[in-house]
């Protein structure tokens, strides 16, 4: 039977300098020098995640679902098809399920085993989402974690925490705030925070 334990000193990464900046630089020098990485591809990747892909995309999806019942139905039935209508697709969002918050159920998303996250909808994950504290605690004490985000749920609302253990990625559709009737799509999307689509926040109240 294959065995895949490696002892501490067997890890090749230990051959690189310990300081992170020097470590990355050394590895980049080797990979680029060996023709294994194209520095221009690195720039294009950063351009994507620093300028193009972020929670404004997920917010467009949520705002559309709030105003368009047919779209909402399609989103809940087949999120990828609904996202595609808005031109949203990509890596780490190949299999999306949208879960809707209601008065009865509050949804919250975590990845306890690593940091799986719906990148095409929300961009790269925030530090807290990747933290040991969130990964460890979100499943056992979600309400205490919510309190740390300033969120207290009404009496009678149950919490369902989705642990992203496969390639399925979850988008929380927050409840539409009171007083948001009559706002246009852009104004509604501005109420949809990143955290409200992870389930650690609620959509903002209109100003």
């Amino acid at each position: 039977m294959p065995h895949d334990h490696s002892h501490d000193d067997d890890h090749p990464h230990a051959l690189l300098p310990p300081e992170p900046a020097l470590r990355v630089k050394a590895l980049q020098t080797i990979l680029v020098g060996k023709g294994l990485v194209d520095p221009e591809a690195m720039e294009a990747i950063l351009e994507t995640y620093e300028r193009k892909v972020g929670p404004h995309l997920g917010a467009q999806v949520v705002a559309r679902a709030w105003v368009d019942p047919a779209f909402r139905g399609r989103l809940l039935a087949d999120a990828n098809a609904a996202m595609a209508e808005l031109g949203i697709a990509g890596r780490q969002g190949e299999h999306v399920v949208a879960v809707e918050n209601t008065a009865g159920t509050h949804n919250m998303v975590v990845c306890t085993l690593c940091s799986c996250y719906p990148w095409p909808l929300l961009g790269i994950p925030p530090a807290w989402y990747k933290s040991d504290a969130y990964r460890a605690r979100a499943v056992r004490e979600p309400r205490r974690v919510l309190a740390e985000f300033g969120v207290t749920l009404p009496e009678g609302t149950k919490v369902r925490v989705w642990d992203s253990t496969a390639e399925v990625r979850y988008l929380v559709v927050p409840m539409r705030p009171e007083g948001s009737e009559g706002l246009d799509l852009a104004a509604l999307a501005a109420l949809v925070t990143r955290d409200s689509m992870i389930g650690t926040g609620l959509a903002g109240a209109p100003a």
Partner: peptide, 10 residues
Amino acid sequence: PVVPGPQGMV
């Protein structure tokens, strides 16, 4: 504790 961060792009 979990320490929240600013909204928007990270």
